[in-house]
Design a protein around this nucleic acid. Structure first.
Lengths: 240, 240
DNA sequence: GGATGTGAAAAGATTCACAGCT
DNA sequence: AGCTGTGAATCTTTTCACATCC
């Protein structure tokens, strides 16, 4: 049972802009951020079970398959509803559908990848996307040597036409796989083009307006966190 | 390893005035996980400032450059020591060094990347590693078509010789850039070879013993979290 | 004056334990 | 009996506010 490092980093901090709300805030049940992050794990585990033909699962078993405690699992599920049967467990497909719905995965999202270097290409070809409701509809780059190349079944578009390509393809999410130096610039353009969901792999802090949702992944950060723990573990019983 | 039972009770008659936090005594107490994650942001911001020739910075400014609140920043820094000057701020280089020391980045870490697909190659060439104390010493793959290829200044080793390569190169961290299907298998071998710090990009739950530190990055997860927020923003107060 | 460092309060997340349903 | 769903307790993280020091 793993319980060591926090798995998912909540990079999205509390949106500070929800003062000035409309006169009626529906106050719909919102799911705590930590729970949202774990929902994706449940979904993955459920789909895996589904593939194995398993029809029912207990909170205990699903928790184990997701790498969380069963009480955390049950609490998380309680945020989206009561989809289990007491004394029995959860129906895999039924639960999977409901979690997917809660996460907004009922329709496909169209993703454009900006940056067709190794990382961009890796992302474009990454099979895990389509199978989980994400459709890579475009990949762009600014390098003339790269524009026009085939990546999977796509052709690299010219990043100069960013706005046009986003519009034509109907992309509603963008992945930034760019060097730090140009990331903010492209990010601004993407936002101006109306995109409000961005996943950035650029190792730099991006400034975005409050209505835009930005998540960040940085490999160097992850390694540094590992280094911290490794260093602690390596100093055993040191004198005081 | 179990969670350090926090024996550092701040209560009781804490002797005020001494305690002498010499810089020789860095990892005495443990830093909260959330703070560790942010330290890497401070480090990045500090190094960026350093590059611009800035010598001093206030908590307010550094917080802004890191994307956190100034009170969070100050609290975080207080976990590693008092390296600022009241009324003045922090000396950029001095603080950067101390944070790096607290994270265990004083010596270089040797990273082996398993999987030389697009992602593995992207990681191997990613310039951000060396500059931040991580040295990619090997890249491996099982595909005969890929073994021997050049990636950056490395040559792809045969994953069949995983243990040998890890030993020869002295790697002490491993990045898994593999398909889900083989990830657990390789992970087990890596652990058996003595590695205790692993960063996995495989979209699957890896089982590891407690003494191993595992961090996970999953792009599909990140997109799903974005989808959740996007969906909420798009449906204001929808009936259930 | 001005900004740090830190107790104390508030908010958020996890775990416990058990009531309630099948 | 067995397992879910959930209030209450515990633990963690963030924010506040101000004493402290340059």
């Amino acid at each position: 049972m793993e319980k060591n490092v926090t798995a998912l980093e909540p990079s999205a901090e509390a949106v500070p802009g929800d003062a000035v709300p409309t006169d009626r805030d529906p106050a719909a049940k919102q799911i705590p951020p930590a729970a949202v992050a774990r929902m994706t794990l449940y979904l993955r585990a459920l789909n895996s079970l589904l593939g194995e033909g398993v029809e029912r699962v207990s909170s205990e078993a699903l928790a184990e398959a997701s790498g969380v405690s069963s009480s955390t699992l049950r609490k998380d599920l309680s945020y989206v509803g009561s989809y289990g049967t007491r004394g029995v467990g959860y129906e895999v497909q039924y639960l999977s559908r409901h979690i997917a719905a809660a996460l907004g995965l009922t329709h496909d999202w169209k993703v454009a990848i900006v940056g067709a270097g190794n990382l961009g290409k890796a992302l474009a070809r990454y099979g895990g996307f389509e199978s989980r409701g994400f459709d890579v509809v475009a990949i762009l780059d600014a390098d003339p040597m790269i524009i026009g190349n085939e990546v999977g079944w796509l052709r690299v578009s010219n990043a100069a036409n960013l706005e046009v390509v986003l519009k034509r393809t109907g992309a509603n999410m963008v992945v930034l796989a760019l060097p730090a130096a140009v990331a903010q610039d492209v990010c601004d353009r993407v936002i101006n083009a109306g995109i409000r969901s961005i996943l950035s792999f650029a190792p730099v802090l991006l400034q975005v307006p409050p209505h835009v949702n930005l998540r960040k992944v940085d490999m160097a950060t992850e390694l540094q966190i590992l280094a911290y723990h490794a260093q602690r573990a390596q100093t055993p019983g040191q004198a005081v």
